[in-house]
């Protein structure tokens, strides 16, 4: 840099305690996400919560295109440490925006919002992995490495684990850009290591879905679920039916059924911009029942060749 400019320092927060001379400026999203990873790491360390930073700035630089940016923080927490992390986040001003049971069909993540640091998505397991979450976390973290994010050391999965996270994530959509960038550029030895880790985590079906090899698992209970996701998702009824088939155990299936029909209070709250009332929930539940009935009639009609 040539030349000397007036020293420029401005506060980037809306803290009422900031100096009167400081101008409130917004931080670019990419910078905020980097800083937020560091904040979450700081809180987790002090709370004694083990976690791994995943995706976005937590990826090794050559695993994602330079133009690809992240809008929130993603972490995978040791399941038995979840309560420690949640207490630390909420103690530092984060508020929960969605719950595990209602966040997605996989019930794998919940998210929290902070006015300065944005969203953090807390995952207790990664969709596609069928090992119990606690056992899976041990496998993810076995070869964990440390990566500086905003100049703060953060634990991340090793290269093999990062590749598997990306590819399994891609299995839930029709967007193949991560597969093309990360998987297709990996050498044969690296790809073999990812397949081995997928076997360890019992994640071979989801991996196959991402790689276009799903037909090898036609007889697997999870086949239909991953076929739907890799084709861009089906109706809500089809997704839950596939998830039901892929879920082992009567108790787990009963829990899934109950969750499938429960109105997502978190999402409804975000949609309405206020806390839903009991009446809001009842009306939405009625709508859901009617929609489910319509979808079921459509499915039965298409099977019988009808047009309903």
């Amino acid at each position: 840099m040539r030349g000397w400019h007036h020293v420029g320092m401005t506060a980037a927060s809306h803290d009422p305690g900031e100096p009167a001379s400081a101008k409130a400026v917004s931080i670019p999203l990419a910078a905020r996400v980097h800083l937020a990873h560091a904040v979450v790491q700081h809180l987790a360390e002090r709370a004694g919560a083990d976690l791994l930073h995943i995706k976005g700035p937590a990826l090794l630089p050559d695993l994602r295109p330079a133009t690809r940016s992240s809008s929130d923080v993603d972490v995978l927490v040791r399941p038995t440490h979840l309560h420690l992390l949640v207490a630390a986040l909420e103690g530092a001003g984060w508020t929960k925006r969605s719950d595990f049971a209602t966040g997605s069909v996989f019930a794998h993540a919940a998210n929290w919002w902070h006015d300065d640091w944005g969203y953090v998505d807390v995952h207790v397991h990664w969709p596609g992995v069928r090992l119990p979450p606690e056992v899976a976390y041990a496998a993810w973290s076995a070869d964990a490495e440390t990566l500086d994010i905003a100049h703060v050391p953060c634990p991340v999965p090793d290269r093999t684990g990062q590749l598997l996270v990306l590819v399994l994530h891609a299995a839930r959509s029709t967007d193949r850009s991560d597969v093309e960038y990360a998987w297709d550029n990996a050498d044969a030895e690296q790809q073999a290591a990812v397949r081995t880790l997928a076997r360890t985590l019992d994640a071979e079906v989801a991996l196959a879905a991402a790689l276009g090899e799903l037909e090898q698992f036609r007889d697997d209970p999870a086949y239909e679920l991953w076929r739907l996701f890799s084709q861009g998702g089906g109706t809500r009824f089809q997704e839950w039916r596939a998830r039901f088939i892929a879920t082992p155990g009567t108790r787990e299936r009963a829990q899934l059924l109950a969750a499938s029909f429960r109105v997502n209070r978190d999402h409804l709250g975000m949609e309405l911009g206020r806390t839903p009332t009991r009446r809001d929930l009842r009306e939405r539940q009625l709508l859901r029942v009617r929609r489910a009935a319509r979808e079921l009639r459509g499915l039965l009609g298409s099977r019988s060749g009808g047009t309903a």
Binding site: G8, M9, T10, A11, A12, S13, D15, E18, V25, I27, R32, L35, A38, V39, H42, L43, A92, G93, D116, W117, V152
Partner: peptide, 8 residues
């Protein structure tokens, strides 16, 4: 860390 505020 952890409360900021961030400075530019």
């Amino acid at each position: 860390l952890p409360h900021g505020p961030a400075v530019v």
